[in-house]
Amino acid sequence: MALPRWFPLARAEARRLLTSNGPWILAILLVLWAYRPSYVGWDELGPNLTVGFIQIAGSILLPLGVLLLSYRSVVAERSSGSLKFLLGLPLTRTDILVAKTLGRSAGIAIPVIGAVAVLGLAGGLRFGLFSPLRFGAVLLVTLLYVVTLVSIATAVSAATTSTVRATGVLFGGFYLVLTVLWKPVATAIYGAATGRAVSAYDAPADGALFLLLRMSPERSYHIVTNWLLGVGNSGALFEPALTKLRTPTSINVYAVDAAFEPGSVPLYLHELSGLLVLLCWLIVPLGVARYRFERGDLV
């Protein structure tokens, strides 16, 4: 089978990342950040606590690292003029965006897989053999999350003309609001829209609230990985989710299973809808960016 015509560019993008320091520094930080044994994790998950470490690695730090490694990918080439070489190649502008997204994803995914392997080794030695199936599945969803984040950053990078604007949209908008602060933001939006103040300690069994909460790719990533870990239906990290669902402690965490009576959960709040949200974030921003990138003047 012939390779797609954007393959050489994607390979060059991946190689450029892999021969730079950034992704490897990220991988080291991920290991240090994610190895966090906890009593509740061990009590409830046993050796699969190690699988939970992958989820910790995928939270807060990974999105920040991926955005940092991707936000300049197109806009910086525009200002440096190297985009002129790419545009001069026999590639459509869409080919260039696809090559950028997939090449950068590969260049980040390889060090991330390395970090996850180290976590698996360290966790396996300390806590015993985990389920390789759950480990592989959570790793796969984490890689999907990486591709999604690269895609979002590439989209913003391709749709803006200044690095400053790309930085503002991605870090001020996407990272801060949709990744770090989405729980209070979504709670506030829901409160403003319905006139009912809600709290995660005692959340109402309202599908709209929980649907709004999982619009964040980070929370959707948690929902899918918590499902694969057997934790329950929650957009929080596995440890607070377990605390909420399996211990008598009342904490500030949203969990579908805690708010709804068993059997009354709407179908759209199934954990798999988190996967759908991730896929939408993967495709929609890049699709919009492609529309603009194909039509505009690029120099």
Binding site: E77, S80, G81, S82, K84, F85, G88, P90, L91, T92
Partner: peptide
Amino acid sequence: VVASHRRIGICPDRFGTY
């Protein structure tokens, strides 16, 4: 674009390298 750029050699002005 693809068909024409296959047969054109381009040396741009004010370009940047990697």
